[in-house]
Write a protein that binds this DNA or RNA. Structure first.
Length: 138
DNA sequence: ATTCTAACA
DNA sequence: TGTTAGCA
């Protein structure tokens, strides 16, 4: 839509070229543009910049944003997200063969599972509450 | 038209 | 997180 999007007309899909502006990314990952910029400023992503200083995101940046979006409802702080993303980066590059890396990955898995269980507890509590409210219906 | 930074009735 | 202002 933007006439200013760099390289829009006819540039072949280089696998991981940064071509998406913040608005398009926000739409695709369903976060506000404000939130995308905020995560960017906090160093959770490494967006490129256009000549006009516009943020430019690649396909892998979008995947990263989606990972962040998954951690968000689990209550990860930005620091915790940064850490997990770092672990995933290393795993994706050198695999989890190194023992300390494997340990980090296992810790992340345990962390997410614990948060998942806490959410499940809340859902169970909500179900109980719903039942109590419905019991008051005439 | 879209994004940028900075700041807060 | 939203929103606004003043630019580029």
């Amino acid at each position: 839509m933007s006439a200013l999007r760099p390289g829009e007309p006819g540039e072949l899909p280089a696998p991981d070229k940064a071509v998406y502006q913040v608005g398009e990314v926000a739409e695709r990952v369903r976060l506000s543009h404000r939130t995308v910029r905020y995560y960017d400023d906090q160093g959770l992503l490494s967006a490129a910049r256009s000549a006009g200083n516009y943020r430019l995101y690649s396909e892998s940046d979008i995947e990263r944003m989606l990972t962040i979006r998954r951690m968000k409802p689990l209550g990860f702080s930005l620091d915790e997200m940064r850490h997990v993303l770092g672990v995933l980066d290393r795993v994706d590059r050198e695999s989890a063969r190194a023992p300390e890396l494997e340990l980090e990955l296992r810790r992340a898995i345990d962390d997410v599972r614990e948060r998942r269980d806490e959410l499940a507890e809340k859902v169970a509590g909500a179900d109980d509450f719903l039942a109590a409210l419905r019991a008051r219906l005439p």
